[in-house]
Design a protein around this nucleic acid. Structure first.
Lengths: 256, 256
DNA sequence: CGGGAACTTGAGCTCTGTCAAAGCTGGTGG
DNA sequence: CCACCAGCTTTGACAGAGCTCAAGTTCCCG
């Protein structure tokens, strides 16, 4: 096991205000950023490289983690010793909320590429919540979204075929990228096929074959981790999902 | 669609203090019960009969629901119009937290038998959280447990066979009954086979066959919704799960 | 007591998993 | 700078767990 050397990010004392993630993080309101600061939140941002762990099962849970850049996968080890991926996380995502009750981490989190993150000590966060309604509400919103996403995963695993699952997965990635202002035609899969497959409850070979099939059908073009979406409508059909305006072919962002 | 007639439970003005669920609900501390009261929480408990809905997809989300008795299933309808069960809920469980972000219910909740529940207006609950650290913490604990359970479901669906899933499901039910002080040898399945199967991402026929097979193996005895556990160790093996002391054959409760 | 819903059982088929092998690729060391 | 190697990915062949369709059986409720 590689040990996780956590590197403090130099030269950034006041990250929250210059984070660029404020819309993704706990509060949109700059005023709240001061509150975060007053509560000594966040601690100095850290950086990890690919393969290093943010935390492991059994370690004491003390802080919620806010991912600032990079990608992280969370996974559990079954009694049989096999790995099961339970989530992929992008900048702005919160990690660790599943461990509040037990007080120790219930899964493992590993960097899929170089990533940086803030740690919000949970007790401080709780105190802050009691003071700031905005932040309290944002936090519950996030948690609510997490639970909802889990329910949607159940629906996916319960009703969709291998092809539909992979297509739906790609759509979700695209949507998340769109929300963050990234490309809606190109995906750089940060995870290995095995991870993708595990997450979707498929065999690696099946996941691979599905991607090949989607490529042969002209829906997309894959080369290792590079995925070009050629026909988003077709991808939507393959997933049996509606594709929202965020992803429509003209790629116009809805402005309100 | 049957309309949900919500019947106020007569003759109970101060339910929280006589709820008997305090250990399951938001606070163990009787003092906090006063706080709940001071915030006009809960509203008058309600009763629903089998088949009636607590809420439906798209209805405005205003209150968290605490189930007091009976059993409830939550489900979503996929684009194809098929029903997907996403949860079964027992007394003490919280319903609706997945809908905070969107402001409207994202799934349906229906009573599997006669059940009673309290509604906690979410805004009042938020204000209460800001005042009582105990309740705030308990609420986050619950939410954390919910997320963790979702992750465990992913693990189950990703790695377990039909037989293992059914066995694991029964074990979980037993464990929940044990926590609530009910039998650890007998289960009265409140849901139809179809619901059970949907939840475990199986066909009805498969679920049925698995139960038959477990019966033939002498692990349990099924008759419609009545399940007698004959060999809990064998059930644990069938589920590939460790069985905790709560369920050990002597049925002694661990006292600390 | 009868009808319908829920459940079980059976037979056949298909999707996906498993096993095996070959192809790529990026990183490392000579 | 190039060659090699380990790990990741793809492809192929095959088998089997679980799904589908269909027909019984049981049970509940009116």
């Amino acid at each position: 096991m590689r040990s996780a050397k956590i590197i403090p990010l130099a030269g950034h004392e006041d990250m929250c205000s210059e984070c660029g993630l404020t819309a993704q993080c706990l509060s949109k309101d700059p005023a709240d950023s001061d509150e975060l600061h007053a509560f000594e939140i966040p601690a100095t941002p850290r950086v990890l490289r690919r393969g290093e762990h943010l935390f492991r099962t059994g370690q004491p849970f003390e802080s919620i983690i806010v991912l600032r850049s990079g990608a992280v996968k969370t996974y559990m080890i079954s009694l049989g010793g096999k790995e099961q991926v339970v989530g992929f996380h992008l900048p702005g995502d919160l990690l660790g909320i599943d461990s509040v009750e037990s007080g120790e981490h219930m899964c493992n989190a590993v960097a899929l590429d170089t990533c940086s993150f803030c740690t919000l000590p949970f007790d401080k966060l709780m105190r802050l919540c009691a003071r700031s309604r905005t932040i309290q509400y944002r936090l519950f919103s996030r948690v609510s979204r997490t639970i909802l996403h889990g329910e949607n995963m159940l629906l996916t695993l319960g009703q969709k075929s291998a092809e539909q699952r992979v297509a739906a997965f790609l759509l979700r990635l695209l949507r998340r990228q769109a929300e963050r202002g990234y490309s809606t035609t190109e995906i750089n899969l940060p995870m290995a096929r095995a991870d993708l497959a595990s997450y979707l409850a498929l065999a690696v070979e099946t996941a691979s074959r599905v991607l090949t099939r989607l490529q042969e059908a002209g829906v997309l073009s894959v080369r290792r981790s590079q995925v070009q979406i050629l026909d988003i409508e077709a991808l939507g059909q393959a997933a049996e999902e509606r594709i929202d305006d965020l992803l429509r072919s003209d790629h116009q962002r809805q402005v309100r």
